[in-house]
Amino acid sequence: MLEKLEKEIEERVEMLENPAYDYGQTFNRQDVLGILVVAVICVLGLIWGNL
């Protein structure tokens, strides 16, 4: 059983490492910008909460 699992994993790793493999929509600059904006709001909110 373990051999079959290992074989399946090996095949899938080959597929994932194929340059033609489609990873779908990746994290991009817009997301990073979104994180920064939300983070700044949170920090300001935390400071305001303790005033």
Binding site: I35, V38, A39, I41, C42, V43, G45, L46, W48, G49, N50
Partner: peptide, 17 residues
């Protein structure tokens, strides 16, 4: 109330990011 809401909502969201 104010401290509870701000520390929870903003603190947890920041940590979650």
């Amino acid at each position: 109330v104010k401290e509870a809401i701000t520390s929870t909502l903003f603190g947890m969201t920041f940590s979650g990011l």
